[in-house]
Every structure is written in structure tokens, then in C-alpha cells.
Amino acid sequence: MAKIEFRSVSKAFPVKDRDGGAFTALDGIDLDIAAGEFLVVVGPSGCGKSTLLDLLAGLTRPTSGEILLDGAPVTRPGPDRGIVFQQYALLPWRTALGNVEFGLEATGVPRRERAGRAREFLDLVGLAGFEDRHPHELSGGMRQRVAIARSLAYDPDVLLMDEPFAALDAQTRESLQDELRRIWQRTGKTVVFITHGIEEAVYLGERVAVLTSRPGRVKEVVPVRLGPRESGAHGEDVRSSPEFARYRHDIWTLLHDEVARARRLEKEEAAA
């Protein structure tokens, strides 16, 4: 049985200015995600990627269809799913340690265990020694590490990541991508990762789901078979291998039409 099942999930939002109209963000999404899988969702901007994640997180409900998590419908948020946001969402008045503890407090971990566990997970993301820093004393990459530690610390089965590395510079992003793969392999979490970066999708995902532009539908799910991605085993760079380029090109082709269509839609809307 799949860990997560989307069964013809649609989500529409009422539109304010146009009378009675509704904006369909997602339309008939069918998608199965296996336990322990790393699934990446790519799509043009405004295709409902984030809506997909909100639905899975239980922050909103689908207009029709259902999402099953371990066979039970998702109706509300729960500690079995952890979210990592693009904007980090760290509490600025708490230290790195305090931010990781926040997740533990929220999920009812006894007080005595919190500090120890928070330290352990900060260590996992390479931030030992930075426990007492406030977010404004950390770089963007470090902040996102704290956010990842926070989501991992309360041990959710599923990690939902909403373009977590989009705001980072290229080098920081690559090192965090490596680290995320390492953490994923070590912890065996099911990861649903949203991005608009094709390279990121190919590098990270075991499968890449390509969404269409509005309304968002699953255009195709591409399995990526690249073997170990971590450079260093033989010193080679997976990103420059011919297989990587092929996957990149396949997904680029799938996305290309969608991006063009999304741009056209946007123009029409602006003109109206």
C-alpha cells in the first residue's frame, strides 16, 4: 500500500472580483507515493504546487477527491507530517535550539527530553556549536538547516518541503541538497519536495512529478535512475553526466510547453 495516495483531488478557490467564478488550482490529481520515497513535484509558477502541499499538510481541504495517508483520509494537520517552508519560518525571538524545541513542544515531547533531542538534530544538520544563535545571526543556509532540524526532530513520517532552497545562493543550495539526500537516506523519511528547478528535481528525486499549468494536473511522473548522487565516491560530478543531462532534458521538454502556456495565461489575465 502506498504511504500517500491522492485520489482525483481537486481544489478550487472562490474568486472575489468575478462574480460566482472559481479559480481551479488543482484538477483531478492522482498520485501514489511509496513509504520512504523521495518524490519531487515540479511545475510552472502558479500551477498549484504549494496548494498540493497545503492539502497534504491538512491546512486546507480538497474541493473534491481525497488524500489518504497510511490509508486514512487527511483532514487536519498532524505531527506525522513536517513542513519546511521557503521563508524558513523561524521564530526570531528564539535561538536555533529554541526553534528546534518549538516543534518538540508543539508535539508534546516531555520537557526533559527536548534540549537533548534538539541538540542531536542540530548536530545532524551540521549546526553543532550554533545552538545559542538567534536567526538574525545566522546565514540563509543555516536558517534553513535549523528549519529542517526542527521538522525532523519531532520525527514525522513525511517531510513536506515547499521550495526550501529557492531563496539560497547556488553553492549553499547544492551543499544543502547533498545534505538533504544524506539525511533522507539516514532517516528513511518519505519526502515530498516542491521546486521549480529542473536540476534540483533530477538531482534529488527518485521520481519527478511534472504538473501542468493552470489548472494543475499531473502531466507525467518520471522515474529517475541515477544511482548514488553524492560526488566524492569517485570524485565525479553527477550533474555533468550524460544520464543527468538526459533526465534534465526530458523534464525540461515536459515543462517547456507548460511554462509557455502559463505565460500566455498570465498575459491574458493582465490584459483583461
Binding site: G126, L127, G129, F130, R133, H136, E137, L138, S139, G140, G141, M142, Q171, T172, S175, L176, D178, E179, E230, S231, G232
Partner: peptide, 17 residues
């Protein structure tokens, strides 16, 4: 606060570039 964010972020990671 100036020296830390720039370099330390990613040199802190094991695969330090």
C-alpha cells in the same frame, strides 16, 4: 555577526567545499 553568515554556513557542512 558579520563574519559568521557568509562563509561558516557551508563550511560547517561535512562536504565542505
Amino acid at each position: 555577526t558579520a563574519p559568521t553568515p557568509a562563509g561558516a554556513a557551508d563550511s560547517a557542512a561535512p562536504p565542505a567545499p
